[in-house]
């Protein structure tokens, strides 16, 4: 296997709303024999709220520089963190002036463009590879799954690592684990509404509802995703959406790392499957 050690960037929600994602990521990599070294004293990537690109570059130059010292590529389970890290990486790599400017702020921001930032999904499917994974998978997911990719896995094109309109990295992984993909193409990369949660929850709820509803009508047992913000919206806020829109959804939402963990035979609690807000018991019953 080509990957044995990676720098790990957990992202801010990792010890709060998305702790199950953090737990499952760590458990899966351990099971796969990939060592994760947490980026020492990492700082926030800027999320979607820091809009000034150069501020984002500066923030992430620090994270990248720390990993670079270790000589490790960074992996993160969060799509926004991935986007911010990798676009900073590309901008800094390409622009010497920018590098100098950022370095001028503080020497700890001295990043030389020697590493890459990666999303866990990319690492699983494209670096470790399906073949390798299949040799380690011990359980079958007897599940109908709606794979939800959200925004930053495949957009914008410079950082996206899959088709912007109809990505399939996660589909491939799910199929490998025995899961069945429900028809979901048009929802895969539609924004979950998360960025407007705090300021226009009406819109955000409608948008999330569209995704949940499509998954439900397609007969999905659960939605699989790969971003804590999407998780917060679709799982954390699902009850609020039900209440606001007077509907009943009850759609389990799990991180792809959790599903992979299950397929690899890792204990459900170790994967934080008891932390997902919408109950995941029915899912667990279908993993054999």
């Amino acid at each position: 296997m080509s990957v044995t050690k990676l720098a790990y960037y957990p992202g801010c929600p990792s010890d709060a709303t998305a702790m199950e994602q953090d737990m499952s990521t760590k458990a899966v990599f351990e099971k796969l024999g990939v060592e994760l070294v947490e980026v020492e004293d990492w700082n926030c990537c800027g999320a979607a709220e820091v809009e000034d690109p150069e501020l984002v570059y500066a923030l992430n130059a620090r994270n990248l520089a720390i990993a670079e010292k270790e000589g490790l590529d960074i992996v993160t389970p969060c799509s926004i963190c991935y986007y911010n890290l990798e676009r900073s990486n590309q901008a800094l790599k390409a622009d010497e002036g920018l590098r100098a400017k950022v370095k001028g702020i503080d020497s700890s921001l001295d990043y030389n463009g020697k590493i890459k930032a990666k999303h866990v999904l990319d690492v699983f499917v494209n670096d470790i590879g399906l073949e390798e994974l299949s040799s380690k998978i011990s359980k079958k997911l007897n599940l109908k799954i709606a794979p939800y990719y959200g925004c930053y896995i495949s957009r914008p094109p410079e950082t996206g690592f899959d088709d912007p309109d109809d990505p399939d990295t996660m589909d491939k992984l799910i199929e490998l684990m025995g899961g069945e993909i429900v028809p979901f193409s048009q929802m895969k990369t539609l924004c979950c509404g998360g960025p407007l949660m705090m300021t226009r929850s009406d819109i955000a709820f409608d948008m999330a509802m569209k995704i949940l509803d499509t998954a439900k009508s397609a007969g999905a047992d659960c939605i699989a995703l790969a971003c804590p913000l999407c998780g917060m919206m679709l799982d954390g806020k699902q009850a609020d959406i039900e209440k606001a829109l007077h509907v009943e959804i009850d759609m389990p939402v799990v991180y792809i790392t959790q599903l992979l963990g299950l397929a690899l035979g890792i204990d459900a609690n170790e994967l934080g499957l008891n932390k997902n807000v919408v109950d995941t018991k029915d899912i667990l019953g279908k993993v054999v």
């Binding site: 709060a16 709303t17 990492w42 501020l55 500066a58 001028g104 702020i105 932390k275």
Partner: peptide
């Protein structure tokens, strides 16, 4: 779900706070 325990009441801080300040001041 144990996601908003007492821990969440307090900020998780980066050790090197000085650099954060600098970044925001400059950029």
């Amino acid at each position: 779900k144990g996601k908003m325990g007492p821990k969440a009441m307090f900020p998780e801080k980066v050790k090197d706070l000085a650099v954060m300040k600098k970044i925001f001041e400059e950029m």
